[in-house]
Design a binder for these strands. Structure first.
Length: 152
DNA sequence: GCCAACGTTGGC
DNA sequence: GCCAACGTTGGC
């Protein structure tokens, strides 16, 4: 099993929004960065995902989701009315993908970015590596364990 | 709102 | 293929 982190602005889609979806499941679409997309394609069913709230008052990992459907064509890339429309994307020549994620758990106390930065055990986590703005990134098992242990 | 750190685009 | 200009992300 692998571990990941996805970012979302809570104003547009929060962990609570995911929890309130039918079956607590939502399509994770709109990824338009090649490196993030490659990470998305590497996700396997059952992989565990940190849900991170970005661009908000207290940026933090707020809970856990699970990959319940592996990558498939991102329908928003084929929709001219969608902001993520990409004319170079097609079924014949796919560029962009989505996965389905399901809500698993909301942390009682979110793991804040500022706390993460203070932990010497987390200094090499991808989230705070220099200039990392990826919306989908892998998380080392040891970092996952350390954060989950704190969040319980 | 500022700005650093990217990624992308497009002229050449 | 280079690189300047531009757009985006996201913390602060």
């Amino acid at each position: 099993m692998n571990f990941w982190l996805v970012k979302s602005e809570p104003d547009s889609f929060s962990l609570e929004d995911l929890q309130s979806r039918p079956n607590a499941t939502e399509m994770w679409d709109g990824v338009r960065n090649y490196q993030a997309r490659n990470n998305l394609k590497s996700m396997k069913q059952g992989d565990q995902v940190f849900f991170y709230h970005s661009s908000c008052k207290v940026p933090a990992i707020v809970g856990i989701a699970e990959v319940v459907r592996e990558h498939y064509l991102d329908p928003t890339a084929s929709n001219p009315d969608h902001s993520g429309f990409d004319p170079k994307h097609s079924e014949e020549k796919p560029k962009w993908y989505a996965v389905d994620v399901q809500f698993k758990q909301a942390f009682k106390s979110p793991i804040t970015l500022s706390w993460i930065k203070q932990q010497k055990e987390l200094q090499d986590i991808s989230l705070i590596s220099k200039g990392s703005r990826l919306s989908v990134m892998p998380i080392d098992a040891k970092h996952w364990e350390y954060i989950v242990a704190r969040a319980r």
